[in-house]
Design a protein around this nucleic acid. Sequence first.
DNA 1: GACAGACGATGAACTACATTAGGAAATATG
DNA 2: CATATTTCCTAATGTAGTTCATCGTCTGTC
Lengths: 196, 196
Amino acid sequence: MDNKEAIVAYARKTVPITELEAIEFASAFKEILVKKRQFLIQPNFTAKSRYFVLNGSLRAYVIGDDGQEHTIQLALEEWWISDYNSYIYQQPASMFVVALEDSRLLEISYDDESKLKAINHQFETFFRLLAERTAASMQRRLISNLTKSAEERYELFIERYAEFTRRFPQYVIASYLGMTTEFLSKIRNKRVKQKS
Amino acid sequence: MDNKEAIVAYARKTVPITELEAIEFASAFKEILVKKRQFLIQPNFTAKSRYFVLNGSLRAYVIGDDGQEHTIQLALEEWWISDYNSYIYQQPASMFVVALEDSRLLEISYDDESKLKAINHQFETFFRLLAERTAASMQRRLISNLTKSAEERYELFIERYAEFTRRFPQYVIASYLGMTTEFLSKIRNKRVKQKS
DNA sequence: GACAGACGATGAACTACATTAGGAAATATG
DNA sequence: CATATTTCCTAATGTAGTTCATCGTCTGTC
């Protein structure tokens, strides 16, 4: 039960939760350990759970028709990860979700989450706010992809997600930003030269 | 009160609502008429409302640093529109929202929506599902933008949003799909030739 | 401690798409 | 119904970003 304090503390940043409710809330989660390179979700299988990261790092990506990997989401401590579309609609996934480091996660199944939402208005509110923030951040990323150049997107990324830049390898960041590793390498090199 | 039946009928597709609740729900909305080219939201002003389209069409777009317009969202009958990020966080908008035709809308303010969510678990659930679906559709669009070519994005668009293709001018669709009108024109021309 | 696989850098050739500029057709609007 | 204005098309030229191929370095791992 110890590690589940983290998810309660996290939820309490958003909605008030009593001690009694906290037990109920926490009991819907199950702690799991995953090894580096272990897959949690794969295309064509339905994402039956989503995951809250206690520690470690994960990556969600799709493989396009051309065989290229495109990173859709990254997760560190206190982030959630899954194939969002698959989870919400309980339909086959299009994404891979894989651990980039040995990680400790809290898993919640779609059914257990549904029950939490149904039995308690506060829990419903918590997940509603989570969804709203997810939608808002996706929209910001979409706008960034539509309006900014590769270089600008990289600048914004390292400014906004400094920690990610340190924790994830370059090819992951490049594929998150929608460019090739080669091009990101070129951008980085240009930046270094400009500073001197 | 007449036109507000539409929003109740719409909500009932998602959650059960009693007759009594229906009145409460509908009373949070206000019918408004907007003329073609009229703006509902502009950058730097906070989007205090979101809008449900009874009839007509609207467009949400940003203007990038280079002066280019990028369409973020389109709305026809039974769609919602606003600057999502601005509305959710009640922060200054980055988008314009403008009517492309004379339109009839139902407006709900952030405060009235918050009250609906607070007083009734069903209403909260309704808006939670709305947010989840919004997030899922944004993610699908993001993936499409990352993994598909301009031509493939256009193909998917006309397949999935046939009605949009009929109702919106080409430059709007091009800027929604993240390409120039000239390039879209080229794609269309190529398609016509291929079919014969 | 050597070998294999992952990661990043670099440069040259290529391509998907943008930009610019022009004009034709369709639609509003007085 | 006449004239703006908006929308759409065509074609030449330009460029951000990709592809491909090569090489050095670093990091496990038996």
